[in-house]
Nucleic acid binder design. Structure first.
Lengths: 109, 109
DNA sequence: TTGACATATTCGTAATTGCTTATATAATTT
DNA sequence: AAATTATATAAGCAATTACGAATATGTCAA
């Protein structure tokens, strides 16, 4: 089984393409809420709501700077996702998959 | 930016905890639709519908065996997720993050 | 062939999500 | 202080999703 359990909110947060794009943007440096919304054609509230989901998932941090809110990437929760996915890496190689199934069948019956 | 683009359907498929559990189960060997549904308290159609989502995302394969459908893990699409997440690994180290932010602030203003 | 079993599909519905409009809050400028 | 700017929250709605009940399909057994 997967080693670590990522919080469900993280998987839900990154399920949306707009939010993934926002995280990618933050990879090239901190951005204000306005800057994060600019590449989209969404209204300001829609952007703000997406940012809230990312905040609630712990994927971004917010700090005030004047009247703007500067967002920064908080990649830690993605480690949980990486761990979950990495469990399946053992199956990426076909040969190992077959061996794994064989061993499983021998041990689980 | 992330190196590869995983299909959106994959992110959506793994956003659901029931479906993640199903994939995890398949990690310990092929299972019938019935076996995959057993640990849940869902009705048979609900299970079947989740399996359809996983199929459509390319995360599982189905083969007929008598009157059962045997499901097997198809981990390839998860590579796209792993690639997407791995882009953010560079930020996992705190020190590098701060250096990155510092450099960003110097270059983007 | 009839009946039981395993699974899928269809349909209707409740819950959730993503969005927009309208409004609120808070900092800055005039 | 009033207007402006940046962002958040609230309310309402349409689209989507997750589900169960009912039904269909296909396979095996009697």
């Amino acid at each position: 089984m997967p080693r670590r359990q990522a919080h469900a909110t993280v998987f839900l947060a990154i399920a949306d393409p707009t939010r993934r794009a926002m995280l990618e943007l933050l990879g090239s440096g901190d951005k204000s809420a306005g800057e994060l919304g600019e590449p989209t054609r969404l209204t300001q509230p829609a952007v703000s709501q997406h940012l809230r989901v990312l905040r609630d998932a712990g994927l971004v941090r917010q700090r005030k700077q004047g009247r703007q809110r500067i967002y920064s990437l908080e990649p830690a929760p993605l480690e949980g996702v990486a761990d979950w996915v990495s469990y399946f890496e053992q199956f990426w190689d076909r040969g190992l998959t077959r061996l794994g199934s064989f061993l499983d069948r021998r041990t689980t019956q």
